[in-house]
């Protein structure tokens, strides 16, 4: 049997069948549920425009996807190292590139699961308004490279750091920095530094494209600059993951 498939199946099993993986998914759905209930319970939020709600939800889904991909990415290398199962895996005849592909597939499946779980939430809050389908599509098209990028970054950090904790902390700081456009208001992002940061930040690229497509009803095709930024970071992190994983000696 193809080793990539075997490793991907193991990684998926740990997410979908292991208690720890299910707890992560539970945490993700609790956050989405809390936000949805807040929209219903808060008088102010319940009056938000439908497109604005869908935009907020897609940004949250992407942020959660990045967080889970980062955790899965770090855990798949550094976590395995600490559990003592990484060295036996590396000693198998399977080439490093094949093992890495299997682990990358695990990250991709984790994102696919989160995306599927988010669809009912998007439907629940956005089905009465405009651009819900476009919102789902742009999240799949642009959220995927951004989320996978963080998964690949997690694998890189897990390969290089001495411990899973160090790798996770470094990854989380990077994620918080990158996801700051969600936390900052539009006025702060209009400053020179904010605009420069937006121009190179893959997370900004994703949320700006969501804004343009969902709120301003622009076409997905017109978001090519945002796609280019996200894909550039994806390939850079893929290269970094391959390089770092190839250097593992213990």
């Amino acid at each position: 049997m193809n080793p990539i498939y075997l490793i991907a199946r193991k990684e998926t099993g740990e997410l979908l069948l292991d208690i720890r993986g299910l707890l992560w998914l539970m945490a993700v759905t609790i956050v989405l549920s809390a936000f949805s209930l807040l929209l219903v319970g808060s008088t102010e939020l319940s009056l938000l425009d439908n497109a604005q709600v869908v935009y907020d939800m897609t940004a949250i889904v992407t942020a959660l996807g990045c967080l889970l991909a980062l955790i899965v990415g770090v855990d798949t290398v550094a976590g395995e190292r600490e559990r003592g199962s990484l060295v036996p895996l590396l000693l198998t005849p399977a080439p490093r590139g094949t093992i890495l592909m299997g682990k990358l597939s695990g990250v991709a499946i984790a994102w696919a699961v989160i995306y599927v779980l988010s669809l009912p939430y998007l439907w629940a809050v956005g089905s009465t308004g405009q651009n819900m389908g476009q919102g789902m599509l742009i999240t799949a098209l642009l959220g995927t490279p951004v989320v996978l990028m963080f998964g690949f970054l997690g694998i890189s950090l897990g390969s290089r750091a001495d411990s899973a904790r160090t790798a996770l902390l470094t990854g989380l700081v990077t994620l918080v920095l990158s996801a700051s456009p969600v936390l900052l208001g539009p006025s702060l992002r209009q400053s020179a530094i904010g605009r420069m940061f937006d121009a190179v930040n893959p997370f900004s690229a994703a949320v700006n494209a969501y804004d343009a497509v969902i709120i301003d009803s622009q076409s997905i095709i017109s978001q090519s600059t945002h796609f280019a930024i996200a894909l550039a970071w994806l390939f850079a992190c893929l290269w970094f993951a391959r390089f770092s994983f190839g250097k593992i000696t213990r």
Partner: peptide, 22 residues
């Protein structure tokens, strides 16, 4: 714009389903 009739079953049902899976 947000209809509680749609949100409540999803917001409560999905975590419960995952909990049941656990």
């Amino acid at each position: 714009v947000v209809e509680s009739g749609r949100v409540l079953p999803i917001a409560l049902g999905i975590p419960v389903l995952i909990g049941a899976g656990m």
